[in-house]
Amino acid sequence: MLLRERETKEGLLVSVCDPDCLGETFENGRASITVSESFYAGEDAVEATPEEVVAGLQRAQVANIVGEEAVGVAVDAGLVDEETVLEFGETRHAQLLWL
Rank of each mutant, 00 (worst) to 15 (best):
V16H: 08
W98K: 15
T49I: 07
L79Q: 12
G11W: 05
N64P: 02
L2Y: 14
T84W: 06
E51T: 03
T25N: 09
V80N: 12
V54E: 08
L22K: 02
K9M: 14
R30M: 13
V73T: 13
I33W: 02
V14I: 06
V62A: 11
N28R: 13
R59G: 02
L2C: 05
T25S: 14
E47R: 15
D44H: 10
Y40E: 10
A41C: 00
C21E: 15
R4V: 02
S15H: 02
T8K: 04
L96W: 10
D81W: 00
G78L: 09
I65T: 06
P50F: 08
E87F: 00
V53F: 05
L2G: 04
Q95H: 09
L79T: 06
Q61G: 12
V53I: 15
R92H: 11
V16K: 07
V62C: 09
E69D: 10
L86T: 11
P50E: 08
S38P: 00
L97I: 01
S38F: 09
L22N: 08
H93T: 02
P19A: 03
G11K: 03
Q95M: 08
G42K: 04
E5R: 13
G42W: 03
L3C: 09
D20C: 05
E82W: 01
E10T: 06
D20G: 05
N64D: 05
G56E: 04
F39C: 00
L97Q: 08
D81Q: 09
P50Y: 07
E37V: 06
S15K: 10
R30L: 13
G67T: 03
G78C: 05
G67S: 01
C17G: 04
G11N: 02
F39I: 03
V54P: 01
V62Q: 14
V80F: 10
Q58H: 04
V71C: 02
E68V: 15
E24L: 13
D20N: 09
E5V: 03
F39P: 03
I33H: 05
F39M: 01
E24R: 15
A77E: 06
W98N: 14
Q61I: 10
I33M: 06
Q58F: 08
T49E: 04
G56C: 11
G29M: 09
E69H: 12
T34W: 09
A70N: 08
T91C: 03
E47T: 12
